[in-house]
Simulated scan of single mutants.
Amino acid sequence: MKYKTSFSCLFAGILAFGYAGMASAETDNETDTSTTTTTQAQTLSFSPGSADIVVGGTLLVKATSTSGLNVVLSQDASTTKYCSFNQKTGFVTGLAIGNCKINATQKGNSSYAFAKAVLVIPVNLKLTQTINFGSAPKIVLGGSGVVTARASSGLPVVLTTKTPAICSVSGNTVKDLKAGLCTIAADQAGNTHYASAPEVTQSFNISQHVAGGGNGNEGGDGGNNSGGGNGNTAGGTKLPVTAPFNCSTLASSGNAADDGRRAYMRLNCVSCHGQDASGGMGPDIRDGGGDVAEAVNGEGAMPSFAGFLCPNDVVDLEAYLGSLSKTQKHLDWDVQFEKIVDGSTAAKPSNVVPGP
């Protein structure tokens, strides 16, 4: 009886110990879970973020991480024929045309997760470059202007004229030869690192100016080239001939004298001969229609208008000037200016005759 009692006590003690051990294990597991930490993501970035190099050229590559931890750079083994990478200096050297790949890795730590990034560097035979012009100069006949053009490579640009009959260029200074559309080309031949730039052009009009005039007996203030203000022997600001025109856009009124008056305005005859053709810096040309054919080719101080005339201009001007009496003053000058076509069309006017 005594033995049984002792066995029962022993069994009860084992059970009690077992429950206590289970409780202790559960407690330990809960403690481990509460102390587990999660690593943060980190982002890698290259400097420069994107770039290309030429065969034989070099590029310094660096990389940083948002974690601030040290980043290791290495070359992708599949691109060794296109470039070489010096891990100590960080310089990439181009070997052949293709894509060079540089790997950046950061192994992470207890706070940051592992990160990797790849920089692809195109290796070209030569770098590309482009040319851009500055503002076009404003040149009048007898003057000159400066053309500016710059290459993205920083290499010097060479300027040449595409219209040698109209203008010439020396360095970046353009000189006129005659009125018309001047076109200047810009080229850059490149070097060991840069390919030649695509040629670009800039076009602008060289205006033919004639001296201005006014009314009165004596000269006044100076103009652009000579004379000024009022006076029969002095002119005002010189005005450009508003030409070339596309002659097909100049509709006829059906009256030769009226069309001649419009031509008189369009060719700026008013600036020399006055609004009523009675004279200014130039002579009185009323009743002088018979001299038009000779005058428009240029004589004395009279500039040549050859190349600026539409087919009927001479006949119409003769009709208009012949209709004016030296005893009358023509005051009806509310004439609508004809439409001037855009520069590309004006450069190649249609139906323009070279002059009588």
Rank of each mutant, 00 (worst) to 15 (best):
P48R: 01
C269R: 07
F245N: 10
A189D: 14
L119T: 11
S74P: 09
T27P: 10
R150T: 15
N29L: 15
G220D: 04
C100G: 04
P356Q: 13
P122K: 04
G289S: 05
L317K: 07
V241C: 05
S24Y: 12
S6L: 14
Q208Y: 00
I131D: 00
V353T: 08
N132D: 10
G343I: 11
K107W: 05
T79L: 02
A149I: 10
C269S: 08
D342V: 11
T201L: 08
K101A: 02
G254P: 06
T79S: 05
V314R: 02
S207Q: 08
E318N: 12
T79V: 02
C9N: 15
R261D: 00
L44W: 01
E294V: 10
E338R: 14
L309S: 12
S110N: 13
G90N: 00
N86L: 00
A346H: 09
N312F: 07
L321F: 02
V270I: 07
A136Y: 10
S84H: 07
N297T: 05
D187T: 14
N29G: 15
S350Y: 02
K62R: 12
G322L: 02
A77R: 15
L127W: 09
G288I: 03
H193R: 09
G56I: 04
G298A: 12
E30F: 11
S350V: 08
S24P: 01
K116L: 11
G290R: 00
H273W: 01
T43M: 07
V296L: 05
P244Y: 13
